[in-house]
Computed example of a mutant assay.
Amino acid sequence: MAYVVTESCIKCKFTDCVDVCPVDCFHEGPNFLVIDPDECIDCTLCVPECPAEAIFAEDDVPDTQRAFIALNAELAKAWPTIVERKDPLPDADEWNGRADKLKYLER
């Protein structure tokens, strides 16, 4: 079972999770992060580090966010690995906690 980044990350892209990942399974897009399910070792270290509370165990992804399981797998193949923490997006605090952000996902 891998961990999954869900909608809460869109337009925030906090990278605190990247710093604690022992296997570098995070991949970075323009305004979102994803986890490569083939690389994730289910260590749970990233979950408490996410200020947006966007990371869930695959079995615990809310029903309204289940599409993000496939989306993480798809985008992890296309996006580069991120291995160091970066500053969040400039307006991340304004977007943190907002719902219905999938339409803002940049590929």
Rank of each mutant, 00 (worst) to 15 (best):
E94M: 09
S8M: 10
Y3K: 15
F32C: 04
I55A: 04
P62C: 03
L75I: 00
D16P: 09
V4K: 11
E74L: 02
I69Q: 00
E84I: 06
Y104P: 01
K101W: 00
T44F: 12
V61Y: 06
P22W: 05
K103R: 15
L33W: 00
P88S: 08
E106D: 13
P37T: 04
E7V: 04
T15A: 03
V18D: 04
D42A: 13
D60F: 01
E84W: 02
L45T: 12
D63A: 15
Q65H: 04
A54G: 11
R85N: 00
A57Y: 11
L75F: 03
K11F: 04
L105Q: 07
G29E: 02
H27N: 08
E94P: 09
D100E: 15
V4L: 11
C17T: 15
T15S: 14
G97E: 07
C46M: 09
A2S: 14
C40G: 06
F26Y: 10
E7C: 01
E53R: 14
I35N: 02
K86M: 02
K77I: 00
E94A: 08
C12Y: 12
L75Q: 01
A2H: 14
D36L: 02
E39Q: 11
I35Q: 06
A99F: 14
N96C: 07
R98T: 12
V47C: 03
D100P: 07
T64E: 13
E58V: 08
R107S: 11
T81Q: 01
E106M: 14
D91Q: 10
N72W: 03
A78Q: 09
D19Y: 10
E106P: 10
T44I: 15
E49C: 13
F68E: 04
N72K: 06
D19I: 02
P51K: 09
P90M: 06
V47E: 12
E28S: 13
E84N: 04
C21I: 10
F32G: 00
T44M: 13
N96E: 10
P51Y: 10
A78N: 05
D16G: 10
P37G: 01
W79D: 00
V20T: 15
N31H: 02
P22H: 07
R85A: 07
E53F: 12
I55M: 08
V34T: 14
F32N: 07
F32A: 03
